[in-house]
Design a protein around this nucleic acid. Structure first.
Lengths: 187, 187
DNA sequence: GGACGTTTTTGACTTTTGTCAACAGACCGG
DNA sequence: CCGGTCTGTTGACAAAAGTCAAAAACGTCC
């Protein structure tokens, strides 16, 4: 549980009572590559914290998979839309490397939010942080040509380029796999 | 102040004490078209709630203005990046129509978050809501061709097309003004 | 109502990126 | 170690979108 608390304590101190409730409500598990944590169409019922490994979220659009994010060690994963509205998710969450992760059930998290102000605060800070990251990614998609988007990713999240496969990266960057292959091959 | 409370009460009930503090800390003002609420390079020190009117946020990229969002009646406006990190903003917030708005100073909001759990909750819910909206916009930029992005905006936020000028809309949709003009003209 | 500045439209052309198809390499299971 | 599948690369071509430049439309201020 220590890595779990470390991941969250950086946002706000967690009191004794909150810590005790968390221990009761947080699950830990190891999952193999290929595991689907959330299937599009189902309601996202858990928030995940990736302890080790790698995962992605993707949408199906015209029969093509469209990666919307990658998650690595320490990242929180969920379908924000489905988790917060309790409606079926549009996205699927798939484990890309053998991973270990923590998770909290939706109702439990609501209980924690309601009873421990610091956990509510951590939830807000996390939500703000991921908003800012998404905003940057969005801006890149909005304004940069394909090559610049690739270079930005190379600078900001090199582990994506090292660990994810080309088709996933290409759709994340909003370009075809062939275009990405050519850019990477320096032409 | 009533419209202000109405805008927030839909997320969580606001207690007496919180209401009293809010009244002390919330400012109200009317601003003319063209007003700059936040200039890129400055730290975003206030959160705004637009009561009436219209505004946008934009970035400068290669000397071009790049609209990242439009705000209308009832929308919250800030540079999330700057407001949360206390670092200079990359974006400028500009009033596009004579408007009236409420605002809260950063330190005051932190006080409210710390002393009134329901306000912290409202902050988290707002942040989650805007994240979901941004996610949809991002997905559109990532996967849809120009024409489909235009049609999606037409269906989802027709008031943008009615009230904003073409160059702003075009950059918001990630295309040139000429392309948008041609799409709109049905060719 | 005319003249100015701004915004939008249009046309010609170029560049970027996508698509389709074939091929090469890597990876895996028997 | 072989055959098959999945992943990445390359080439030829097509489609989408950008750029530049000019003209038209619109607003608004005297």
């Amino acid at each position: 549980m220590k890595p779990f608390f470390d991941a969250f304590r950086q946002y706000a101190p967690i009191g004794e009572a909150a810590q005790a409730d968390l221990i009761r409500m947080v699950a830990h598990e190891s999952v193999p590559k290929g595991t689907v944590l959330l299937q599009a169409g189902q309601v996202c019922s858990r928030l995940y914290l990736l302890e080790a490994g790698m995962a992605r979220g993707y949408y199906l659009h015209d029969g093509k998979e469209l990666t919307s994010w990658f998650a690595f060690e320490g990242d929180v994963m969920l379908s924000m839309h489905s988790f917060t509205t309790r409606r079926p998710a549009f996205e699927t969450i798939e484990i890309l490397e053998n991973s270990s992760l923590y998770s909290i059930e939706y109702e439990h998290l609501q209980y924690l939010y309601a009873h421990h102000a610091e956990i509510s605060t951590i939830g807000r800070l996390l939500s703000e942080k991921y908003y800012v990251e998404l905003e940057e990614h969005t801006l890149a998609l909005q304004v940069m040509p394909a090559k610049a988007r690739y270079e930005r990713l190379l600078a900001q999240q090199p582990q994506v380029l090292q660990r994810a496969q080309l088709s996933h990266i290409a759709s994340y960057l909003g370009m075809s796999q062939e275009t990405l292959s050519r850019i990477r091959g320096k032409r």
